[in-house]
Computed example of a mutant assay.
Amino acid sequence: MDVSVWRERGEPLVAGSGRGPLRGLRLAVKDVHAVAGHRIGAGNPARLAEAEPQPAHSWAVDALLRAGAEVTGIAQSDEFAYSLNGTNAHYGTPPNPAAPGRVPGGSSSGPAAAVALGEADAGLGSDTAGSIRVPASYCGLYGLRPTHGAVPVTGMLPLAPSFDTVAWLARDAQTLARVGEALLPFGPEPGRFRKALVATDLVALADAGVRAAFRVAAAELAERAGLRVEEVPTLAGDPVARAVAFATAQAGEVWQCDGAWVSAHPGTFGPGVEARFARAAAVSAESRIAAERVVHRTARTLRAALPDDTVLLLPATGGPAPLIDETPERKAATRDATVRLTCLASGAGLPCLVVPGMSTEGDGLPVGMAVIAGPGSDRTLLALALALT
């Protein structure tokens, strides 16, 4: 068992119901979901040591087990799910078979690596600021962050509740959709998208190799899906100010959720996460309120731009996966560029699908295409993913 990928593993760890549409599907569960009889460690040994076994499964784990899936194991997370790189100072960096020598992305790093390696069929994780979308992009996987609140987060360790969602990834669109059938609320038949927006200022946030790949991939996706592309110069205001506001609002909630535990356990985090918590501790009530106003204003603008028949296309990440031994400064720069993209769906509570297939010019590294839609369009996004296969 590779401990950088798995915290616990069984054959299976938890058996499924033995019946249902997901019968036999191998599930890697991120170490922020409750699995009955097991502890939640959230990627941190000190938290794991103090944790008590969970009395029941999280809502999402229970729903998937009842649908026939089996829990192959509990997969690693970036510490407290508060990172996007996929590195862990305690357990190591999970491999990225799609880009060897590079990070898998986080914080759902363990499930992403398990799925990419073929050791699981689907990964159940969480997504607050991109924790499913980033590893899906870096590892060449499909991923879905659903509409905020569409899937109950009961039994999932909170990070920033206003932005937390249950989320999942898979190697193929069919498996992604099958998991969605078990998790998403019943509703009308999926609709159809007819228009795709491309915002010039958003595409410009990615590096040159990604921008070139995106232009080709966006045109191909639109043609295959029968979408009319409309290019606009901007969509939701200044991307830097928007990302800073989102990070501030998120940090305020993070400290509210975890600050007491973090304060009582100094020195237990890796350097990147430790610094992030220190910044969260410094967010004043006034700064948080001002940031939330910006987030809410951006959310209204974005939702108004995305009626039922319209999607927004953008790169899922600002660049391909950084090298494992990349300098902290370079990793931070990549993360900042990526958050400027991922914070759109997070701040507006909108569903976002990541589809693989893009690769950067020259080195051929995988990068995902993100498709953001209006609230409640989760099943239509999954139908789009199926239509593209």
Rank of each mutant, 00 (worst) to 15 (best):
M1N: 06
D2V: 02
V5C: 01
W6D: 00
E11A: 13
S17Q: 11
R19K: 10
G20P: 07
V35P: 12
W59M: 04
A63G: 08
R66F: 03
G68T: 12
A81Q: 11
G86R: 02
P94E: 00
P94W: 00
P100W: 02
S109N: 09
P111F: 00
A113I: 10
L117C: 11
A120F: 01
L124P: 08
S126K: 13
L144M: 10
G149I: 05
T165H: 11
L169Y: 02
T175M: 03
R178D: 09
P188M: 02
R194N: 08
V203K: 13
A208N: 09
V216F: 11
A217S: 15
A219R: 15
A219M: 11
L221Y: 12
R224Y: 04
V229R: 09
Q256C: 06
P266Q: 15
G267V: 09
F269Q: 12
P271G: 08
A278I: 09
A278Q: 15
S284Y: 11
R288T: 05
V295Y: 01
T301M: 14
P320Y: 11
I324Y: 04
R335Q: 14
A337Q: 15
R340H: 07
A348F: 01
P351Q: 02
E361Q: 15
D363N: 14
P375D: 07
R379E: 12
L384E: 03
A385D: 10
